[in-house]
Design a protein around this nucleic acid. Structure first.
Lengths: 182, 182
DNA sequence: TTCTTGTATTCAAAAACTTGAATACAAAAA
DNA sequence: TTTTTGTATTCAAGTTTTTGAATACAAGAA
């Protein structure tokens, strides 16, 4: 389970509120690598706080619940370090679209084609979106410190992932078009 | 949730026992697209049976529990068809390795390099494994009926996915080597 | 002025998934 | 002969994730 460690990793870069962490998952890192809902983030932060891996400074907000700024503790840093040092396993793909490969012949080829075209468009948009995250790093590629290089490379993984999807969609659409024509 | 529909899709191709379905997830389709544990499969089949989407023929086995051969019902076929016709969303990546991009600088570059080299090797092996699934289809590429073409294309997605990982590992290792040298 | 969007947290229930185990026999390998 | 591997199903507990909602105020847009 990497949610815990992803949150610790965010906090190792800078203190953040639960809201900010959730936003990272929704927009920044998460948009290309790991998504988590707000509720999940808040629940995990509470658990991490109870375990002493993070602490928070409560900032009173007039008329509503305190805003909590979380930081990583010594213990949390250690947990993260241990985890980073251990090898991690690749995860499975888990794509709904895969079912088309098993049972696509049950629907008309138009449905399959439409779906792949839709996917192509979505991934094309994702390419741009993830490239935007990389903009700053891509500009100073030769003078990146290691911290930023790693970030760049992981974003590159996201970019390549989305580009690869587009390329596969093209391959698939071409093959289906040819097969249907015959 | 596509587990349900993936199982229905398997059964739309041929009747299978729970054990066989689990094997598909572990070896065939699952090795490149969706993994599910045996327990998950058995639980899901029980649920689908209660909902009338699959039925089973119990085959008595002397001295042990009946073997159940599941087939899809009319209702199950309809459910699958409806689902296939609806657009499906891309899923998030969810890779533990992503955390390296956020906090890799906390460990030595050797650790990062070792981890990426390890991943490269794993994905290289996966390329071969998935290519083996495609062997039959790749051979008769020009005479594939639609059913098999779809299967081929989805396996191609798996191959490309694994190849893309290898390519990214190379890119990353090159970039890190250069940065460390300086 | 009202509506929407953004900031900020929390609760609760359900669904999905993981982990670990028990049972039982056949067949092949050591 | 004993062990391992493969076939075949089920139970139970725990963790993770999803879904849906409530609360509350500020700021900007319509």
């Amino acid at each position: 389970m990497a949610l815990k460690h992803t949150i610790l990793a965010f906090l190792s870069r800078q203190p953040l509120s639960g809201y900010d962490v959730a936003k990272e998952f929704a927009e920044g890192f998460g948009s290309c690598f790991w998504k988590a809902s707000q509720q999940q983030v808040y629940a995990e932060l509470t658990k991490l706080e109870q375990q002493g891996k993070v602490t928070y400074e409560a900032i009173p907000q007039p008329g509503r619940l305190d805003k909590k700024i979380y930081s990583i503790t010594e213990q949390g840093q250690q947990e993260l370090l241990d985890w980073l040092t251990k090898p991690c396993e690749p995860s499975a793909i888990r794509e709904d679209l895969g079912v088309m490969g098993l049972a696509g012949h049950l629907v008309s080829s138009e449905v399959v084609i439409r779906e792949i075209e839709r996917r192509r468009q979505l991934h094309l948009e994702m390419v741009q979106q993830v490239k935007n995250l990389d903009e700053h790093f891509a500009k100073h590629l030769d003078s990146l410190e290691l911290k930023d290089l790693y970030m760049h490379l992981i974003i590159r993984r996201g970019i390549r992932y989305q580009e690869e999807w587009v390329a596969w969609c093209d391959e698939a659409l071409g093959a289906i078009a040819q097969a249907v024509k015959q």
